[in-house]
Nucleic acid binder design. Structure first.
Lengths: 143, 143
DNA sequence: ATAATGTAAATGCACTTGCATCTATATGGC
DNA sequence: GCCATATAGATGCAAGTGCATTTACATTAT
């Protein structure tokens, strides 16, 4: 049987702990501020980047690495809150096109400072630039 | 407003992506093998370490960084599956003592090779020893 | 001893997630 | 055109999670 080395094990536990703590910090800062969860930010961001042409749900699924039903339901909730607009696709009768509404843009804009502050406190305050770059490089080897 | 640097941002995205992918890989290997989720492993491990003296639920809550109700329900499911034994605490009438049953030890033992293999493939194969050590060091600054 | 406050653990309720499946449209082969 | 198969997206159901609250016992102060 394959036994992971001590270095592997400590990298693993550090990875899980760090990711969980930082993520929890961001999520709770958002919740604290009465804002939606982080996943909404990512989705709103992608939709915003797509601009006037909009975006298809399956594209969002790919970009956010969500399960298909996860995207469907996330879009449901965002639509229910009036943040996005769903229209039937002209080219593909099975699908839709998602576009950002101004309320969605506004919510994303309100989320950003909270998100940024959490990243600042959680990462920027704790690592030098070089360390952050090294860390990113090593983590990208795991993806 | 505080804007995170480019290095911070890329460390952040790399952190989230790497953690999610590695974690998903472990979880799906376990599920694939018909075994319970990773959280069970951690819990079973802690309970096993506690030995014959057992462990109090609130201690597990602290060690696993779970919400209190999360522990309560996790223990419920493990007890329902006959993996642990819950007895009322002799010293504290409010509480219980958790002890591992042999079925619990067996499940943890079956989980380990699957878990270890996923760590091997996900981490050990992708990082040198030195890199893993550096990574762990950097990640620990974030905790 | 009594009352007030604190801590251990469980739970009702609303919401989210995972899984499997379903409906509708699209596409390729014949 | 017609059928088989593939893809977009939604959804019923079971299970898990978060929040707030509850129950029970413990501890401290009076």
């Amino acid at each position: 049987m394959i036994a992971p080395s001590a270095e592997t094990t400590s990298a693993w536990t550090a990875l899980i702990r760090a990711a969980r703590q930082r993520l929890d910090a961001v999520e709770s800062a958002l919740k604290q501020a009465g804002l939606p969860p982080l996943a909404w930010y990512d989705a709103l961001w992608e939709i915003e980047q797509a601009g006037a042409g909009g975006l298809r749900p399956f594209e969002l699924t790919e970009r956010l690495l969500l399960p298909q039903y996860g995207t469907s339901r996330l879009l449901n909730r965002m639509a229910r809150d009036g943040l996005i607009e769903r229209t039937r696709s002209a080219e593909d009768g099975r699908g839709q096109v998602i576009r950002l509404k101004s309320a969605g843009q506004a919510v994303r804009a309100r989320m950003w400072p909270v998100y940024a502050a959490a990243l600042h406190d959680g990462l920027q305050d704790r690592l030098t630039s070089d360390e952050a770059a090294t860390l990113a490089g090593l983590l990208n080897k795991l993806a």
